[in-house]
Design a protein around this nucleic acid. Structure first.
Lengths: 343, 343
DNA sequence: GCGCCGAGGTGTTACGTATAACTTCGAGGC
DNA sequence: GCCTCGAAGTTATACGTAACACCTCGGCGC
């Protein structure tokens, strides 16, 4: 135990370990790097490892990165972490990364508000690659500027730049929703759409309209709302208060908006699902917290993160990254039912 | 668009910038580091900056860290990011950090499941300090082992080690809840407690019992559940199905559990709040997504993150970190009301 | 007996940056 | 005219690691 006068007790370096084990620093590096099939004897290796753990040696990651030029670190750029979906994407990416001795650091892209900091500086680590959500608009230009391998999540196929892409089959999900509701007998729809104008939401609208166009007597009206419960509720209250025939089903771009729709219904005295069906999208924890539970589309968020990481690892290895298109699945719960007989 | 034959197009270094600007590397470092009050002429500085932006120069963070020994990077250890509370703590910490040119990287401590990876290795960057939630049990030993400045969030005052501490006044929050319900006339309580056994939950139980002990005819029963909606619902269903006088109010350790309690009530045909009052804790987005909206205790999650970062910065500067005790506030919404006349 | 070989290491270097120490040079003081 | 001084740079170095190239030495084939 050295008497630590310094504010920082000077972490031991590989040279300290070498001294303690009576070998050279190079040997320490070989042993701790696992590169000693015939280079270092078992006895020496043992002494080195003992010395390292005695001293509490922990390699200096900055020095290692500098030396290697690679950092085994990826940056994940998401619009917001408070959104459970992206928190799960992170979890998936980090889990797969860990298996390959990779790390994932985060950059929650400021959504317009807040100073748009440099994603790379804020990462605080040299990066080997980037995985970015298409919704993280605030950072996209910077990402394309840096010539790092880039994997895009849920992005418009027409946009250029990414080395690889992982998409969800959003269109199919919306198709499943629509068919479910049509099958129940619904014909008059309200589409509670996100006010955010990104590809993933455009796809939802297209798929909904596409599926309904094939049905003679189906009608749909669209209202937009910011991605929070209150905005969703207010938009639906306004829409249902408006004149004209009342829709029998509300298709929402997101579970959060669906929660708003349910609240609006309850406040207007409409029972869900008997008098009004509501569907969500994402299958957040929220979907099963509500009563009735939401019929929604389950998005494999963790899988998105995993596949994103997988694609990035492939690109870094020079392997081709197979384009990912992940299936989604309608989960029928209690918020949908046949329309009331009167309608 | 350069034709990239190399796998990595060799990012420009400060030396490349120096060459392009016709100066020495040291000058580039001075200019870009902002250390040129009288060291470098305005004209030269301009040339350097132009060259840097022409080449798209971006300092190598690993090299900088190695040189400086400090990284201006903190690790935030949380139990889970999908928990909105901790996502908000992160947001608060990161926001304040950014103002001080600090970065925050995350380690979501595996909750028992999953391989407990080394938090420091997984940080992928040399660290200046650590901010850890007391709930992140999976990583605490490792954190104490490393001699890094440590700030603990919401931790038991009796445990040792941390350089600083930021606590929420949980006890006061629970007191406010209890008094609110007592004031409404409730006397028979059910406490839906977290099965997780950490200090923050122990405090809730103590405060609740403390406040009720002062009231002659008040009774309380406790049931425990894991921190998810379903577990909460099931626990409450079992409790309410049991024989004996039915409680008129359910005090929950957490909004998520409260959502479960509300579901249980609805399934049992009990109207909230008319026949049963329910309170939460945390004021998550979920609290206002439910109908009726939850009466709950608002925790300033972002402030917790901010204060944690503030304390860490103070410790790193050698300043004393004033112990933080953040106030919390009861938010009365629609899930509480006087008990039914019959009771 | 000599050369060779492989096991088991060691010496040295470079990664890119920040900064302390030094150099150069023109202006000014006396 | 010489010395000083400040402005404006430059040279050199160290941070801790990984890995290349080298070294040493005992054993063994011939």
């Amino acid at each position: 135990m050295t008497s630590a006068q310094q504010p920082v007790p000077a972490r031991p370096t590989s040279r300290d370990v070498a001294r303690a084990a009576g070998v050279s620093q190079a040997t320490v590096s070989l042993v701790l790097g696992g590169k000693w099939p015939g280079r270092v004897s078992e006895a020496t290796a043992g002494r080195v490892r003992d010395a390292a753990s005695d001293l509490g040696y922990r390699p200096n990651l900055a020095a290692r990165s500098l030396r290697l030029g690679r950092t085994r670190t990826a940056l994940l750029v998401v619009p917001a972490l408070t959104n459970e979906f992206f928190a799960r994407v992170y979890a998936g990416a980090a889990a797969l990364a860990a298996e390959h001795d990779f790390g994932v650091v985060l950059y929650p892209s400021p959504d317009g508000t807040g100073p748009a900091r440099d994603p790379f500086a804020s990462a605080r680590a040299a990066l080997d690659g980037v995985i970015a959500s298409s919704m993280a608009a605030g950072a996209l230009e910077a990402l394309h500027g840096a010539d790092l391998p880039l994997v895009m999540l849920d992005s418009d196929p027409s946009d250029t730049g990414p080395a690889a892409r992982v998409n969800l089959d959003i269109a199919d999900g919306m198709r499943q929703v629509t068919e479910h509701l049509l099958g129940l007998g619904h014909r008059r729809f309200l589409h509670l759409a996100s006010a955010v104008d990104t590809w993933t939401f455009a796809v939802r609208a297209d798929a909904l309209h596409g599926a309904l166009d094939a049905v003679e007597d189906a009608t749909v009206r669209t209202v937009r709302a910011a991605l929070d419960v209150r905005a969703g509720r207010e938009a639906v209250e306004r829409a249902l208060a408006a004149a004209g025939e009342r829709p029998t089903a509300i298709v929402c771009d997101d579970d959060i908006l669906a929660a708003g729709a349910c609240k609006a219904a309850r406040r207007l005295g409409l029972r869900v699902p008997d008098e009004l069906s509501v569907t969500g999208f994402d299958d957040l924890a929220l979907a099963t917290a509500l009563e009735p539970e939401l019929t929604t589309v389950r998005l494999p968020a963790e899988r998105v993160g995993e596949r994103g990481m997988e694609a990035l690892l492939a690109v870094l290895d020079g392997r081709p990254a197979e384009p990912g298109r992940l299936p989604v699945r309608l989960v029928v719960r209690g918020s949908t039912a046949p329309p009331a007989a009167g309608a």
